[in-house]
Nucleic acid binder design. Structure first.
Lengths: 100, 100
DNA sequence: TTGTCATATCGAGAAATGTCGATATATTTG
DNA sequence: CAAATATATCGACATTTCTCGATATGACAA
């Protein structure tokens, strides 16, 4: 993994709420209520459910999730009006290999 | 590892130079000139040699290394007027376990 | 003790990030 | 089409971090 990407991931991990989101998404079914649509939490958790759990504003959480997706920590899939976020385990492993 | 420590490590990894230092210290004998004192680079690299390689000011590098030590990424040992820094592999592994 | 060297700490201004409310966009529903 | 809903983006101000030069500290040498 390139240095720039390591740094971008580091920026995401430099904030308590973002680290918690990453942690919660290890077990999305236990940490979030079921999605309104049929989609399982395993495939991704919608922005609203993450926002509610953190207590921060909608715009802040949307910004957080966007930056976590751009650096590769999270994967996003859109379905209608919802965006579903899940961990991107491949990139996380690459990041780990870069620093260990 | 506690959330706060993960975040402090994240802050250290959010800067290009600090990530490079961590990378260089994987192989200190290849990346730094021998220490003036008898101490091997394997046991730690002194601040001056790290500063010279980065090109940043002495005070900046001292601040960087201090924060990397406080969060547990680096280990420091003092010897006379020198401080020697090396990777703290135990904490690095703990950090990795926290995010994977 | 005085001077020199390596490192640490301080104070400051510049730059980046945090976080919000307001608003824009896009999708679905009536 | 109009309204409602979920998410994204914008603009702004507060806070944090970056990075430096200046200075303090502590160890060693003369």
């Amino acid at each position: 993994m390139k240095l720039k990407q390591v740094v971008e991931i580091g920026k995401c991990l430099s904030n308590q709420t973002r680290v918690e989101i990453l942690e919660w998404l290890k077990n999305p079914e236990a940490n979030f209520p079921p999605n309104e649509s049929g989609i399982s939490n395993k495939e991704g958790v919608c922005v609203g459910n993450i926002q509610e759990k953190t207590g921060l504003s909608q715009s802040t959480i949307s910004t957080y999730l966007g930056s976590m997706e751009r650096c590769g920590l999270l994967h996003m899939v859109r379905n209608g009006k919802w965006s579903y976020f899940s961990r991107n385990e491949e990139t996380i492993q690459e990041f780990i290999r870069s620093i260990q």
